[in-house]
């Protein structure tokens, strides 16, 4: 399988590094264009219709996100690259889009490309990219959507619909205020990172709760969520948890 690939980065050195690594470790990728001016990206992508695009985030005049925002139907798989930008990385992770940090590690590259290859076959790029664009225009975390890799595919859910996550034998069950729970093959640790925000509290090694659904706290170490679910709070976390509840 030949994957039509485009690289966008304002730094010629960064393009050279990535090309070199791809030629050594990702031979399935066929680089059809490299773009140094982000302003050129829109036309080139429309013309070549790539499967996969590597996009640098911090670029002069137009950021990687702004490149993406120009498309009404961005159906190409993306792997973002950045030297450091916590805000951007969080936004990308929420949508289960691939990313690499510079300097790029060979193993990370291979893993990101493997994931991307799978996603290209599953054809789920358009939805993820659209959610990223939508999320970028939203300030409040609870109003954003996140992408959850479930056992059957990708699920797109609103943050404010999640009541809690429950770790079960290395899997994670995500519970909602309405509707059936989703089972994800990722561990609870994955969701701790995904929901890394003050509204989500890791009350117990197997539970992360959405603070907006907390109804009351019982002194024997249980917190009651809307819908009458009771969740244990680990002994070591009770004091800090209570402090946060009092806010």
């Amino acid at each position: 399988m030949n994957i039509k690939t485009i690289i966008i980065d304002d730094e010629p050195k960064a393009i050279a590094i990535l090309k070199n690594k791809i030629s050594r470790f990702c031979t399935a990728l066929d680089i059809v264009a490299t773009i140094e001016k982000p302003q050129d990206a829109f036309d080139t992508i429309n013309e070549l219709n790539p499967d996969l695009v590597f996009i640098d985030i911090a670029m002069p005049g137009m950021s990687g996100f702004e490149v993406l925002k120009q498309f009404s139907n961005p159906n190409f798989e993306i792997i973002f690259a950045t030297a450091f930008d916590q805000y951007a990385l969080d936004a990308i992770k929420h949508c289960a889009i691939g990313y690499l940090v510079k300097p790029i590690d060979n193993e990370d590259l291979v893993e990101a490309v493997d994931n991307a290859t799978r996603n290209i076959m599953d054809k789920n790029a358009l939805e993820k990219n659209k959610i990223l664009i939508e999320n970028l225009g939203i300030q409040k975390f609870q109003k954003k959507k996140i992408v959850i890799p479930s056992t059957v595919g990708l699920e797109f859910v609103k943050v404010k619909s999640i009541t809690h996550c429950e770790g079960v034998d290395g899997y994670t069950k995500i519970h909602f205020i309405n509707g059936k729970p989703i089972l994800s093959s990722h561990s609870i640790g994955h969701f701790k990172k995904l929901l890394d925000h003050k509204d989500f509290y890791h009350v117990h090694k197997s539970y992360i709760i959405n603070m907006i659904f907390v109804e009351r706290y019982l002194n024997d170490g249980y917190v009651i969520l809307e819908g009458n679910t009771s969740i244990p709070v680990a002994r070591a976390k009770r004091t800090t948890f209570l402090n946060q509840l009092k806010g």
């Binding site: 050195k13 960064a14 050279a16 590094i17 070199n20 690594k21 911090a58 030297a83 450091f84 930008d85 940090v101 510079k102 300097p103 790029i104």
Partner: peptide, 18 residues
């Protein structure tokens, strides 16, 4: 600035690769 640190290391990686 972490951005500076990582970008510098990235540039060094370029010369190593070459």
């Amino acid at each position: 600035n972490p951005h500076f640190v990582h970008n510098s290391l990235n540039a060094i990686q370029y010369y190593i690769q070459r």
